[in-house]
Design a protein around this nucleic acid. Sequence first.
DNA 1: TTACTATATAGGTTTAGCTACTATTTTGTT
DNA 2: AACAAAATAGTAGCTAAACCTATATAGTAA
Lengths: 145, 145
Amino acid sequence: MDDIKEKLDIFHNHCKAKGLKVTPQRTEIYKTLIASKEHPSAEMVYEKIRQTLPNVSFDTVNRTLNTLNDMGAAFIVEGCGDVRRFDGNMENHQHFKCINCKKIFDFSHKTFDNISVPENLLGDFKVLRAVVYIEGLCKSCQEKK
Amino acid sequence: MDDIKEKLDIFHNHCKAKGLKVTPQRTEIYKTLIASKEHPSAEMVYEKIRQTLPNVSFDTVNRTLNTLNDMGAAFIVEGCGDVRRFDGNMENHQHFKCINCKKIFDFSHKTFDNISVPENLLGDFKVLRAVVYIEGLCKSCQEKK
DNA sequence: TTACTATATAGGTTTAGCTACTATTTTGTT
DNA sequence: AACAAAATAGTAGCTAAACCTATATAGTAA
Ligand SMILES: [Mn+2]
Ligand SMILES: [Mn+2]
Ligand SMILES: [Zn+2]
Ligand SMILES: [Zn+2]
């Protein structure tokens, strides 16, 4: 998998371009995030990363994840009322969120990728993000009821 | 405005149908919510309602707003990373959320009202809510920069 | 290499937003 | 009027996330 090496290279350049230092913690947190398919919370990343960096602090993990969001190397998954979840996959895709077990599933529906913002909004508002997402119950949570 | 009276009648029947008691607090909280256009937080409703019910507790306001969401008389506004906001307008509409001042603006774009859920999802997932929303900067927040 | 400065980190503390608990009160129904 | 179920007030508790500060590190320039 040279894919990861390439992504790390891009990430490091991205950091430098923004004047952010390339630290082992920052690199490891980014690597952990993009390796995960479960849209982890800060806590989940923290638990994972302690295996390789036992002395890392929770604050560093949390702060760094927010930094990744700010610099555009990751984003905070939309949704409401729960622990903040992060996604390192910047390709166009959508999410299905189970309101019971909180699992987040990726799916891709091209017509949702570039939804057109109403013309009358464009005058007054600067659009930064247009989101489509779906909430409901996943298969195993349906069966439990 | 008999509109409000009618909405309260419907709300009271809705409560009874769900086995929920009609209390002055519950009625007042609902009335406050539907009168507001600002998608208030529990705190905002609490501050407003103390003017008419000085002894109401914050917990009652918060619990009741969640009850309204559960019974389908209101809903929690989608979005992430902020205080929970409530909306008593159950008609189909969408939201623009300013990430700076946190104001939430209603808009209505018919093609967003009933977005079609991908067929391949319908097999495994039970869809409860499909949401479109837009984030960005409102007019006054753009001007400040 | 070394020295320097800006930035990041670890560890701890604090805050915000909400939820849980319990004694008391109120509602809706006989 | 009496009763049982449910709601409320007031308080205490919880958790995610931000903040604080002394120390450590990365990047840069001599
Ligand atoms: Mn994703
Ligand atoms: Mn609305
Ligand atoms: Zn589930
Ligand atoms: Zn604004």
